[in-house]
Write a protein that binds this DNA or RNA. Structure first.
Length: 415
RNA sequence: GUGGGCGUAGCUCAACUGGUUAGAGCACUGGACUGUGGAUCCAGAGGUUGGGGGUUCGAGACCCCUCGCUCACCCCA
C-alpha cells in the first residue's frame, strides 16, 4: 500500500452503517424539541475569535488552550466554534430576533471543535445538539428544559442516567463568594502551585480544577457557592428543584457542578450515564442571564443545554431496522437492458432496488443478494426477456414464481 | 496538559528466550454445482509487522524518535 493520508488526530469518519443511528437521533431530537416550541437555527462554523473570548470567558480552559484559532487572508482572527451558545446570542442580536413575536427557543445540530487530548467520548471535532431559550427568567423553564432532555432520552430508550443540579449564583452573590475564596486561598498560599497563585487574582473558582492534584485537595476545604446564594438565587434554585419534583424528575444536588465555563448564573445541570466511563456527561447546561447584555444586546436572560452526539449515540440502543429491497440478477446483455428498465420502474414504485453491473454468474449474484439481505430477487435471462415474464424469488420463503411486469409491480406495492 | 497500556491481512488475533519464506479464523474472489442464496469441501488473492532511525550475523519482538489508538487524571458534550 502506498503512503496513506491520515485523518487528523481527534477526527473520524462516520460510515454508512453508523450514520443510521445519527439520523435516528437527529430526527428524534427535531421531533421532540419542536413539540416544545423550539425551532432550528444554523450559524456559521467559524466566528470572530473575540466572540468566544468574551462569551465563553477568558479564564475558561476552552478559550485559554482549546480553540482552533487562525488568521484568514485579510488578517482577521477567526475561531472554529468550540461551543454554540455565543453564536446564537450573536445571531439574536444581529438579526434583532428579540423584536419578533416568535418564541426565542432554538435548537441546533452541528460540529464543534476543541483542541483537547482525544480519548473515548472526547474528540477534536465532535457534534452537539443544543437548545437555548431566551427571555424566560422563571425557574420553571429551567425545569422544563431538564424535563425535555429527560423525555428525549427516554424516547431513545436511554434509561440509566442521573441528573445533577446546582446553582452557581449570580453577579450579586458571587462576588462575596469569590472574595471568601480569595481569602481562603491566600491563607493556604504556600500549598498552591504557581498557576493557582495567579488564579487567586484572575478567577479563584479555577483552583477547583487545577491540574495539580494537591491544589484540588487543598481546595476541598474551600466553601461551597450554595452557602452564599443571595435571596433571589436561593429562591430560584429551590423553585427549580420543586418544579423538577413536579415533573417527576429525580435529581442530586452537586455543589461543585460546572465550573469550567464562565458565563453560568444560577441554575446549572448535567445528565450523566454510568455506561460512558470517564467522560460521562451526555449533556450539560444552565442559565446565563448576563451574556446578551454583555454583547451589547438587550438585557435578556438565557438558559439551555448542549448534548454530545458521540456520547449519546454510544448509549442509545439500536435495533437493525431494515426495509425490504429487491436485488435484480441478470444474465447476458439483453437481460441487462430489460433489467435496467425494470429497476427504473420498481424504484418509481418506491422500493429500494439494486442492480450491480459486474460480470457475475447467477450463483454469485444470488449469494450476494442473500448476503445483502434482499427480500426479493428478480431473475432475468434470455428466456425471460423472450417471454416477457420474469422469475421473482422470495428470499425468505425460497418460493420462486414467474411473473410479468404488472404482477411484479403489484406485489412490490403490497409488500 | 500529565501518567499507564497498545499498534501484525479488511476485521479478530497467533508467531517460544531475537532465528528459515510472518500464520489462523471470519470476510473477499473463484471452483466442486453450464440459469439459483444460506451448509460443506477445495483453491486464490490479500502484509514494507503504523512510519523513521539504531543495536545485532540476524528484529514483528530489543533501544530511541515520531504518528495514531486506548485507559486513567483533569476538563468538558
Amino acid at each position: 500500500m502506498k503512503k496513506q493520508i491520515p485523518t487528523i488526530r481527534g477526527t473520524k469518519d462516520i460510515l454508512p452503517r453508523e450514520i443510521r443511528k445519527w439520523q435516528r437521533v437527529e430526527s428524534m431530537a427535531k421531533k421532540v424539541f419542536e413539540l416544545y416550541g423550539y425551532r432550528e437555527i444554523r450559524t456559521p462554523v467559524f466566528e470572530a475569535t473575540e466572540l468566544f473570548e468574551k462569551g465563553t470567558g477568558e479564564t475558561s480552559d476552552i478559550v485559554i488552550k482549546e480553540m482552533y484559532t487562525f488568521k484568514d487572508k485579510a488578517g482577521r482572527s477567526l475561531t472554529l466554534r468550540p461551543e454554540y451558545t455565543p453564536s446564537v446570542v450573536r445571531s439574536i442580536i444581529k438579526n434583532r430576533l428579540y423584536l419578533k413575536p416568535d418564541p426565542l427557543r432554538f435548537y441546533f445540530i452541528g460540529p464543534m471543535f476543541r483542541y483537547d487530548k482525544p480519548q473515548k467520548g472526547r474528540y477534536r471535532q465532535f457534534h452537539q445538539i443544543d437548545i437555548e431559550v431566551f427571555r424566560e427568567g422563571d425557574p420553571a423553564i429551567d425545569a422544563e428544559i431538564v424535563e425535555m432532555a429527560d423525555y428525549f432520552l427516554k424516547k431513545l430508550r436511554v434509561y440509566d442516567t442521573k441528573t445533577l443540579v446546582n446553582s452557581v449564583g449570580c453577579k450579586e452573590c458571587r462576588p462575596a463568594y469569590i472574595k471568601d475564596l480569595r481569602k481562603k486561598a491566600e491563607e493556604i498560599k504556600k500549598d498552591l502551585c504557581a498557576d493557582c497563585l495567579r488564579k487567586i487574582k484572575t478567577n479563584p473558582l479555577r483552583i477547583f480544577d487545577c491540574k495539580v492534584k494537591s491544589c484540588r485537595e487543598t481546595a476541598q476545604a474551600f466553601p461551597n457557592i450554595t452557602d452564599y446564594l443571595c435571596q433571589e438565587c436561593e429562591e430560584h434554585f429551590s423553585k427549580f428543584c420543586d418544579y423538577l419534583g413536579l415533573y417527576g424528575i429525580k435529581y442530586k444536588v452537586e455543589p461543585r457542578l460546572v465550573r469550567g465555563i464562565d458565563y453560568y448564573t444560577k441554575t446549572t445541570f448535567e445528565i450523566i450515564s454510568s455506561k460512558l466511563g470517564a467522560q460521562d456527561a451526555i449533556l450539560g447546561g444552565g442559565r446565563y442571564d448576563d451574556m446578551m447584555k454583555e454583547f451589547g444586546g438587550p438585557d435578556i436572560c438565557g438558559t439551555g443545554f448542549a448534548m454530545g452526539m458521540e456520547r449519546l449515540i454510544s448509549v442509545v440502543p439500536f435495533e437493525k431496522e431494515k426495509g425490504g429491497f429487491l436485488y435484480l440478477a441478470y444474465l447476458g446483455e439483453k437481460a441487462k437492458r430489460a433489467g435496467m428498465e425494470l429497476v427504473q420502474l420498481i424504484r418509481r414504485e418506491g422500493m429500494e432496488c439494486l442492480i450491480e453491473f459486474k460480470k457475475k454468474t447467477l450463483k454469485s449474484q444470488m449469494s450476494r443478494a442473500n448476503k445483502l439481505g434482499a427480500t426479493w430477487v428478480l431473475i432475468i435471462g434470455d428466456e425471460e426477456v423472450k417471454k416477457g415474464k420474469y422469475q421473482l424469488k422470495n428470499m425468505q420463503t425460497g418460493i420462486q414464481e414467474e411473473k410479468d411486469r404488472e404482477e411484479i409491480l403489484d406485489i412490490i406495492q403490497k409488500s
